[in-house]
Write a protein that binds this DNA or RNA. Structure first.
Lengths: 77, 77
DNA sequence: CTGTAGACTTCCGTCGACC
DNA sequence: TGGTCGACGGAAGTCTACA
């Protein structure tokens, strides 16, 4: 599991928790829909600002997103 | 206070807490010294991976760094 | 509603050099 | 030890379009 994939998983879960489409998330976060798609699939990694904008739209804190990413990365199978 | 500056402040504090020079932090994090300098001065914003690499060198968690950045941003003067 | 592709602009991150 | 400059390759992020 690499960092981008872990972030993508967390992003998708949080988006669905908020009952948003990729398009809505993109719009409210001032980002592009195709870029959200790539983030969720681990094809791109966000910058610091992007993390803050997404967290704000998802009614959570950047630090809480990071906690979830960290716990995904620490899971051993 | 913008996001990059807040991050830069936190980075510099954490680096000094660990008694590292910019050059040492750069080396152990596999980054460039000039880039660390720009990060600390809020001239660049790190990507997700960069945050993880820096946190690891600084013996802390990415989420803990984010908490500190968030609290700097929430300070009202 | 989402994935992907291509072309595009802006910025990240490296490197060598000098102060 | 840290700040800065210029040049560079590659990646972030946008946009249009089609499946």
């Amino acid at each position: 599991m690499d960092i981008e994939r872990a972030f993508g998983e967390v992003l998708r879960k949080e988006r669905k928790n908020n009952s948003l489409s990729q398009e809505e998330l993109a719009h409210f976060s001032d980002l592009d829909r195709t870029y959200i798609s790539m983030l969720e699939r681990g094809k791109r990694q966000p910058s610091l600002k992007t993390i803050f904008m997404l967290a704000s739209t998802l009614n959570t804190l950047p630090s809480e997103i990071m906690v979830k990413v960290e716990s995904l990365l620490n899971k051993k199978y």
